[in-house]
């Protein structure tokens, strides 16, 4: 098992390095200097050069990359062009909300998806058809629109939950949880439908496989076969795509957080992108990439626990 973790880590590090490199070079593709963007209409060639020198943009690119990477390793992601605040602090402020939302969406997606998928696979006929139709619709709903509707119904009309929802976990866990319900459902609905479909397919396949016949023929109860044997087999392909789902959820959370007025990283990244605030963009992307890579690592390891074939001998 340790071998598996080490080999996956060995892959993750260059992955992060390449992402950093790609993100850094991206800033060269953007037309127009950030100095111009900061100065706005009053910019003159003279003042632009001055600001560029201030920001260190006149130094060779490679040098800047090495500097930036070294500082990033030490937890310093630089200073925002616009606010002149440390990027690390700005991100640290925003990430809890993004993480809360994404993890909440993931929990909804997995619980709802696996539950409905299994139910759909073992209950042919009406339940299967109803769940099938529900997943088709679930796959087609834009999450942020679903969030708007949920908010309209449960917060505005029924008043069951507050409209402005986010309370930091450290302030009041219960309020945090209450505030998480609607956003998590909104974010997780599409992924839940996706996982439900995968689970159903994998379960149907698992239940039709010869080992189910063997166990049935050995006198094992259907219930035990479904829950202990078929489910574990079916989880292998489902787990394999969970990393992808998580990545999609982070992206979607940037949109959903707008609806629920979550102070997440999405708004910060959006304004930085538009304002050409490169240190914030670079820092944000690298942090999110690191997050995704870490989670993929975690999933790979649990995949190894689930599927003995990928464990190194």
């Amino acid at each position: 098992m340790r071998k598996l973790v080490v080999s996956r880590l060995a892959l993750a590090v260059p992955q992060l390095v390449i992402v950093a490199f790609v993100v850094f070079s991206m800033t060269y593709l953007v037309p127009g200097s950030p100095a111009a963007a900061i100065l706005g209409a009053s910019a003159t060639p003279e003042s632009i050069r001055q600001v560029e020198a201030q920001l260190g943009l006149d130094r060779p690119a490679f040098e800047r990359l090495i500097d930036w990477a070294w500082n990033a390793l030490n937890g310093d992601l630089g200073v925002s062009f616009v606010t002149t605040l440390p990027v690390t602090d700005m991100l640290l402020q925003r990430m809890p909300a993004t993480l809360s939302l994404t993890v909440g969406g993931m929990v909804v997606a997995l619980a709802l998806g696996i539950g409905l998928g299994v139910l759909s696979a073992v209950r042919a006929g009406l339940p299967d058809r109803v769940i099938g139709a529900a997943t088709s619709v679930g796959l087609s709903i834009p999450e942020f629109w679903f969030g708007m509707i949920l908010l309209l119904v449960f917060a505005v009309e029924l008043g069951w939950v507050p409209v402005v929802a986010y309370v930091p976990l450290t302030d009041d866990p219960l309020a945090w949880l209450r505030g998480m319900i609607l956003p998590s459902i909104a974010l997780g609905i599409g992924a839940a439908a996706l996982i439900a479909r995968q689970t159903r397919g994998a379960m149907v396949e698992a239940l039709a496989s010869p080992y189910v016949d063997t166990l049935t023929a050995a006198g094992v109860s259907r219930r035990r076969i479904v829950l202990r044997y078929a489910l574990k087999n079916a989880m292998v392909p489902v787990l394999a795509t969970t990393g992808l789902t998580f990545r999609i959820l982070i992206g979607t959370s940037f949109v959903v957080e707008q609806i629920f007025a979550f102070p997440g990283a999405g708004r910060l990244l959006l304004t930085s992108v538009i304002g050409k605030d490169f240190p914030v963009v670079q820092g944000g992307v690298i942090v999110i990439a690191a997050l995704v890579i870490a989670l993929n690592l975690l999933i790979d390891v649990s995949y190894g626990l689930l599927n003995p074939k990928v464990r190194p001998q």
């Binding site: 892959l11 260059p14 992955q15 992060l16 390449i18 992402v19 790609v22 991206m26 593709l29 953007v30 037309p31 990393g243 992808l244 990545r247 999609i248 982070i250 992206g251 979607t252 940037f254 949109v255 990244l269 959006l270 992108v273 538009i274 050409k276 963009v281 992307v285 999110i288 990439a289 690191a290 995704v292 890579i293 993929n296």
Partner: peptide, 24 residues
């Protein structure tokens, strides 16, 4: 496959942000 792995680390929405920033 390594390139896919790198792409895996970036949410699509972020790629969208980036491309539109670059291209307008």
């Amino acid at each position: 496959s390594r390139a896919f792995d790198v792409a895996d680390a970036l949410p699509g929405m972020l790629v969208g942000f980036a491309v539109i920033t670059i291209l307008g």
